[in-house]
Design a protein around this nucleic acid. Structure first.
Length: 493
RNA sequence: GGCCCGGUGGCAGAGUGGCCAUGCAGAGGACUGCAAAUCCUCGUACGUCGGUUCGAUUCCGGCCCGGGCCUCCA
């Protein structure tokens, strides 16, 4: 089955055919690094990470180039930097680092390239010059503006005409604009603001320009997929198309446009004033990063997602159900590295992650049955399928025992100990997480209690045995007696 | 005003012109000293009004409700 993707440009699901299967090229708009990412920022990262993994699976890891930029010049950055009394580079370096750390905790692979806007100012200036030469841009009062009327197809992505945009009446009509719909390519900086010398004086680039410049640099003038949040369709992506195709006539820029739907929290738009603003960092203190990832993938990427903490708890239980049979099958060898076919079909149908998760759970159930039947052949097969499917979604790749033994998250700082490196990504050191010894002294205590309970059970002193189990449960440790007389434990809740 | 999305069982969430999503929660059973985990069985849906059709939750139209975008928010 071919990979089907919903293209915002055509508003249809289309069979995906790369321009060059040996070099599949994806660009996704990355963060503006002025503050820690919130859970809404995480959605596109996780969604397009699944796409990245899927493309690597289909075309081979070395044949996929994934670029996600970092916007490190912006008015909000300027404001935040001056608030803190640091220069923007200090602020953006620090914020970008925290962003990468958060995204890694969510199991997202590092993109192939992560260019920063400020390192591509030259390319942006060159692009502006080309646009001016071709009559698509003009300088006015130290600004350079893109002349929307010079591009008859402006609005092709958002399916709006220039007139419809103007009718919205929220357009800033600056006196230096020839047309109200024109947008800024370059704007002047005051001496206290970051700026670069240019033919139009010292200034800084408009936001849309960086993606046009950097995608060209890393992916060329024609590439396969451009992704981002739904809110970027207009004006950001519309303007990127206008800039790039105006500068390079005869080229098509991105072929397929993917946009993820909005995320709301408890049914309401996330905002600081409502008190429902959830940062990834804050959530990581309460939940495993992998549970957050599962929660984000539990809704199809184009659907609106209502993010709730109850939902994350549900997602964590879903992961328990995947890890449980993997724990039981820990000593078995997986005999395949092919994901279940229906699972793959679901992902290939416009990244239907909820359906894919369902198939993964089906495989987990098959593994459970095989374990019950002690069918070594099926155990190996389903374990392999489950791990392979999980690898494609960045789920269930950790050590099962560590997943169940991990420290309660309220007591944890730093990294998620539950994830070990994804099996299929041995070449990505950024994704190697230490498998911390979370069982340590406390584990020894639990083991001692288990031993004590075992002797109580052997002498049929069930009251004592139950008391020990109850005490442990109060400490957040749930016991699980195995048929062979041994007892397992795991974190309750 | 313009454009675009949704409304599925208690909750979450896929999908389909006629037969099952699935999970959580709930009910019952197997297993267990009792649990847990696991397995088996079960109940409860497709906003509303019309139309097309042998048949619509699924296609079309009206309406109601919710959400988003319309110059820099993923």
């Amino acid at each position: 089955m071919p990979l089907m993707l919903h293209n915002t440009m055509s508003r249809k699901k289309e069979a995906f055919t790369p321009l060059d299967p040996a070099r599949v090229r994806v660009y996704v708009c990355g963060p503006t690094v002025y503050d820690d990412p919130h859970i809404g920022n995480a959605r596109p990262v996780v969604v397009f990470d699944v796409l990245f993994r899927l493309l690597r699976q289909v075309y081979g890891p070395e044949h996929v180039t994934y670029v996600r930029n970092i916007t490190d010049v912006d008015d909000k950055i300027n404001a935040r930097a001056s608030e803190r009394g640091v220069d923007i580079r200090t602020l953006t370096e620090d914020t970008a680092k925290r962003f990468r750390d958060d995204m890694q905790a969510l199991g997202a692979l590092a993109p192939t390239h992560e260019p920063r806007a400020t390192e591509h100012i030259g390319g942006m200036i060159a692009l502006i010059q080309t646009l001016i030469e071709r009559g698509h841009a003009y300088a006015a009062e130290d600004h350079v503006l893109f002349a929307v009327q010079s591009k008859p197809d402006y609005g092709c992505l958002s399916h709006r005409t220039r007139d419809e945009l103007i009718a919205g009446a929220r357009v800033e009509v600056a006196p230096y604009k020839r047309d109200p719909a024109d947008f800024v390519l370059w704007k002047p900086s005051t001496p206290d603001l970051p700026g670069w010398d240019s033919p139009w004086g010292r200034g800084r680039p408009g936001w849309h320009l960086e993606c046009s410049a950097m995608s060209e640099q890393f992916l060329g003038r024609d590439f396969d997929i451009h992704g981002g949040g739904l809110d970027l369709v207009f004006p950001h992506h519309e303007n990127e198309i206008a800039q790039s195709t105006a500068a390079f006539p005869g080229t098509g820029f991105a072929r397929v446009w993917l946009h993820n739907g909005y995320l709301v929290v408890d049914g309401e738009k996330m905002s600081k004033s409502l008190g429902n603003f959830l940062t990834v960092r804050g959530l990581r203190a309460e939940f495993p990063g992998e549970a957050l990832r599962m929660a984000l993938l539990g809704t199809h990427y184009r659907q609106p997602l209502d993010f709730t903490k109850a939902g994350v708890t549900r997602a964590k239980r879903q992961l328990d159900r995947l890890y449980q049979p993997l724990k039981e099958a820990a000593s078995a060898k997986d005999t395949t590295d092919t994901p279940p076919l229906p699972f793959l079909a679901a992902l290939e149908d416009d990244l239907n992650t909820p359906l894919a998760i369902h198939h993964l759970r089906e495989t987990a159930q098959c593994l459970n049955k095989a374990l019950t039947d002690k069918d070594a052949r099926l155990i190996g097969k389903f374990k392999g399928e489950l791990l392979a499917g999980g690898a494609l979604m960045g789920l269930a790749q950790g050590d099962p025992q560590a997943w169940f033994h991990g420290k309660p998250f309220a007591q944890q700082d730093g990294q998620n100990p539950h994830r070990s490196p994804p099996k299929s990504q041995p070449d990505q050191p950024a994704n190697r997480l230490p498998l911390t010894e979370s069982t340590g002294a406390e584990g020894a205590h639990v083991e001692a209690q288990i031993a004590e309970r075992k002797s109580a059970r052997l002498r049929k002193d069930f009251a004592a045995a139950d008391r020990i189990r109850k005490e442990l449960l109060a400490q957040g440790v749930a016991l699980e007696d195995k048929p062979d007389g041994t007892t397992d434990w795991k974190r309750a809740g």
